[in-house]
Design a protein around this nucleic acid. Structure first.
Lengths: 324, 324
DNA sequence: TTGTACGCGTTATCAA
DNA sequence: TTGATAACGCGTACAA
């Protein structure tokens, strides 16, 4: 490996002069610059990032923490990495598999100077356990959390859920099944509030407690709901899911059971994932790309000490043929 | 930031002794070890990875290069990151957007000592342009390439394509449309050979040149094929795609046009992606997880100078309801 | 405009 | 078993 010193010797100058050329800092006369560039070419010199990082204490790398990296993660990940690339930042992946310890290890990487900042896609630890890591570097997430320590690009799911339910009521659906996420999650709580308000406003609609599902996991939930619906004597005429992937699973299973969508039951999702267009799913587009953009830019502005103004996120109904 | 020197002072020893404790190299008496561990705890000492990396010249990081990170990438990425985690390696993402320069930049990271090895998911440069980078570190890919410089976990698509076509012929399909990938790709060439052989063996089946599509891009191709099929006077009774996502798009568009699968046309894919089960797609499972496993383990064994024995990859027909 | 000297935090070598 | 000292490769005051 050729170092800055080799170049210096070859060009007959000191290594600091070479450093100035390489890092484009400080003054170097054209003549010596020429000599040095020549020497660098001759020797095939490549600056060593490791040494640079040690010197600067920075890595230009951001950790992306997630339970895993499936098709559900990919929209967000894709937008995040593209934004990072524009700013010359690297993205490092940390799979936790839902393990609390692994998640903290990843957070610790900021202390270890392995990364400059952290984005949290999915978490296992409580926000209170995560917050203290703010002192080692900025943290952002797309989950809903109100804290000065952690930036959140959340969308108001109270509004969007109410919008979804009003839409379904308008379309003539009378009994709605609700598949909700984890109740340690502010988004879920917002949805529950929206749901309560909705039924207050619509006394003509029946609120069936047995068709309100909390804490739904990702895998297989959709298929389970479908089978439950299949067997139920009193079936709701519509099912609303908190995320498109579960809705997709449910539709898939319903089709296997011989049902048609929306003839037999209406299905509505939330996210507008890549899969949603394929399966004609009515959903709400919450602009994950923009959220990812905001999440990266917050981290970037914190690191660069610049002003951060997020792009406002709208929520748009995407009407397809999974609802009548 | 507390350094090894702070710990040394606090514990009243030299920094080399502390280093021995931290790195678990060399002998330290129990008494002093106790003192040092106490001091580390008191000060909340965290070793600095950057300094370690500089010293060792290694980063324990592998670059994952891809045009982008969509749902199509995610199966592979997920398996790759999980395998890496097991070996305590980090995965760094490099989006190229199909840009040749950006791709070479990413390859260059090995020179810069930013990463130890590289995995190529999608590429823009020719293999001949990529090979020279081998001298900076090991390279692997899942694409088909026969070279001592680059490890490839490819599956033999000649075999799997022939298997698919025989299956379709057995099911009674008479005219088959073929949607193939790029012809700068050995997989595609293998498929073309399989296709030729297949029609030689089945003179009773008509080979329609106008229903053989080469160089099909990812986005929108499936929908275009569907519309072409819709308008065509003589429609093939079956369409075979080189990847599930395009098949999924095609099914989606056919449904919008009012057709049913497999009543109006049979559809067959390749990959067995996450989406495939959802849409009941008959396909070939080429075990991407195992391929990712092999690709990582090759890189790992090259870095560690250990023996590498890949897990053999089988190709299994997954029969669902998109074919009769 | 250039060179000297030191610091970044760690590990490795050698002597004690 | 421990400590002093020299690497690792680069950046940067400060002086010249």
């Amino acid at each position: 490996m050729t170092t800055i010193i080799d170049v210096a010797k070859k060009a007959g100058v000191s290594k600091s002069t070479v450093s100035r050329v390489v890092s484009k800092n400080g003054y170097v006369s054209d003549a010596t610059r020429q000599k040095i560039e020549q020497a660098m070419d001759d020797l095939g010199y490549i600056p060593n990032m490791l040494a640079r990082n040690l010197q600067s204490g920075l890595t230009k790398t951001i950790a992306f923490i997630s339970h895993d990296f499936n098709q559900y993660t990919s929209i967000f990940l894709n937008a995040f990495t593209k934004t990072a690339l524009k700013h010359d930042f690297y993205v490092n992946l940390y799979v936790t598999g839902g393990d609390k310890e692994k998640e903290l290890d990843a957070l610790n990487l900021m202390k270890y100077k392995q990364v400059d900042a952290v984005f949290i896609f999915t978490r296992s630890n409580s926000w209170d356990d995560i917050k203290p890591y703010r002192k080692y570097g900025p943290i952002s997430t797309w989950h809903r959390i109100d804290s000065p320590d952690i930036y959140s690009s959340y969308v108001n799911q109270y509004d969007s859920y109410l919008m979804s339910l009003e839409f379904l009521a308008n379309r003539g659906y009378r009994t709605i099944g609700h598949i909700l996420g984890f109740d340690n999650n502010k988004n879920t709580l917002a949805r529950i509030n929206a749901l309560d308000y909705f039924y207050e406003q619509h006394p003509e609609l029946e609120k069936k407690e047995e068709w309100i599902f909390l804490n739904s996991k990702h895998r297989q939930t959709g298929r389970n709901i479908a089978r439950k619906w299949h067997k139920a004597p009193n079936k709701p005429d519509c099912l609303v899911f908190y995320t498109d992937f579960i809705a997709a699973e449910c539709i898939s299973e319903l089709q296997l059971l011989g049902y048609s969508i929306p003839e037999n039951v209406g299905i509505m999702g939330f996210d507008n994932n890549a899969i949603s267009e394929i399966i004609h799913l009515t959903t709400v587009d919450c602009h994950l790309e923009t959220q990812a953009f905001n999440c990266f830019n917050y981290l970037y502005s914190e690191l660069k000490k610049t002003e951060f103004t997020p792009i406002e996120i709208t929520q748009d109904l995407v009407i397809r043929s999974s609802t009548k």
